[in-house]
Design a protein around this nucleic acid. Structure first.
Lengths: 184, 184
DNA sequence: TCGGATATACTCACTCAGTGAGTATATCCG
DNA sequence: CGGATATACTCACTGAGTGAGTATATCCGA
C-alpha cells in the first residue's frame, strides 16, 4: 500500500474488512469498535469510516443490507463478499511487510480480530510477523553496511530505519511473551 | 503537519525551503541534491519537486527568476522571500515534534543544510532535538501507565510508540557521539 | 413538560499532495 | 547519424480523507 500510485495509501480498508470477519456490522458499530479499542492512537473520523465502506462496496468487497429498527434510524449492515473475505483472511494471517507504518496501524487490529476468531493462532501469527520483521532487519543492516562512507545522510537515514525496526522486534518480543504468559 | 486538514501532510516543502537557505537553486538542481543525499530512503519524483515549488511560489515563500543558458534549456532559479526565509530558518533549528515520521523525513536534510550553513551549530541542534524527543518519550510513558488494563489494544499500540521513540533516542545518541568524535 | 444536549446512523461537496506521462532543448557516443 | 541520455519542466489526473452537515430518536435537568 505504500507502493501507492496516485491518491494515498488507504489505511482503513483492511481493518474494516477484518472486523467484518467477526460479524456483519453497520458503519456506526464498526466505527465504535475502532474508537473503543485503538482510539487512543488512531483517530478515525466517522466520515472516513463511511467513505471507506463506500469504496469497499464499490469494489465488490462488501455488500450492505438495510435493516429497519424499532426506535432507531434504519441502518445498513455490511457483510463480506467472497472476494472481501478472501482479502480479509489473507490480511489477517499474512505477516505485514517490514514497515513501521503498516505494523503500527494494522497489527493491534489484527490481534483484536484474531482474539475473537482464533485466539489459539495468535502466537503463531506473532511469530510469523516477527520473522518477517527480522528478515527485513537483516536486509536493512546489509543495506547500511553497503553504503559508502561518502554518503553520510543516506547512512544516517538508513541507520534510523534500522533502529526503528529493531525497536519493533523488541516490542514483538514483549507481545509474544505476554501471550505466552497468558496461555500458561 | 500531521495535524493536516484535507489533502495530505506536505513532506517536501520544508526541505526545499531549507535547501534554498544554502543558495538559490532551480528545480532540477534541488531535485538532484535530494536524490544524491537521501535518495536511498526518500524517493522523490521530479514532478513532486516542481509541484511543491509551484505551491511554495503560490504561497509567497519563494520567487523564481528565469535565467537563460548558453547550451542548455533556460531554467528558473528559485530564491526565498522574507517569509520563506523566516519559515526555513525556524524549521532548521526548531526541534521537530516527537514524531517518527517527521524526524525520519526532516532531520537528515536539516543536518545536511546545517553542515553547509552553520556546522558548529549541529551538536546544539541535535541536543535540542534529543531533548524534545525525550520529553515526548516521558509523556508517552505517562500515557501508557495511565491506560487501564481493560484496554489491551490501546496499550499495545501506545507501547509500540514508546519503543519507536526510544529507538529514536538511541539513534540520536549515536549521531551526537559521531559529531562529537568528528569535532575532536 | 419542554427543549437543548446527546446518541444513533449516515451523506456530501470538497481539499489538495503527489503521480505518470509527457514536453522541450541540447549533448553524447557507437 | 540517430537513439540514448542529460537538462529542465508541465499537465491532467488520482483518490483517501475532511469538515460540516442531515435525519431520527432518546435523555434529563429546569
Amino acid at each position: 500500500m505504500s507502493d501507492a500510485t496516485f491518491g494515498r495509501a488507504p489505511t482503513l480498508e483492511n481493518p474494516l474488512l477484518g472486523l467484518l470477519l467477526i460479524r456483519p456490522m453497520h458503519g456506526y458499530d464498526l466505527h465504535q469498535v475502532l474508537i473503543d479499542n485503538v482510539g487512543m492512537v488512531w483517530h478515525v473520523r466517522q466520515s472516513q469510516t463511511y467513505s471507506t465502506l463506500d469504496r469497499l462496496e464499490r469494489r465488490g468487497l462488501i455488500v450492505g443490507d438495510i435493516e429497519e429498527q424499532a426506535n432507531r434510524p434504519q441502518r445498513k449492515v455490511n457483510s463480506l463478499t467472497a472476494a472481501g473475505r478472501q482479502r480479509a483472511d489473507k490480511w489477517l494471517v499474512t505477516p505485514g511487510r517490514c514497515s513501521v507504518q503498516i505494523i503500527r496501524m494494522d497489527l493491534p487490529v489484527r490481534l483484536f480480530i484474531l482474539a475473537h476468531l482464533a485466539p489459539r493462532r495468535v502466537p503463531e501469527v506473532l511469530a510469523d510477523q516477527r520473522q518477517a520483521i527480522f528478515d527485513g532487519y537483516m536486509d536493512m543492516n546489509r543495506s547500511l553496511a553497503a553504503i559508502p562512507p561518502d554518503q553520510p545522510y543516506n547512512r544516517m537515514a538508513v541507520a534510523f530505519r534500522v533502529h526503528q525496526v529493531w525497536a519493533m522486534l523488541e516490542w514483538l518480543d514483549h507481545l509474544l511473551q505476554s501471550y505466552q504468559n497468558n496461555s500458561a
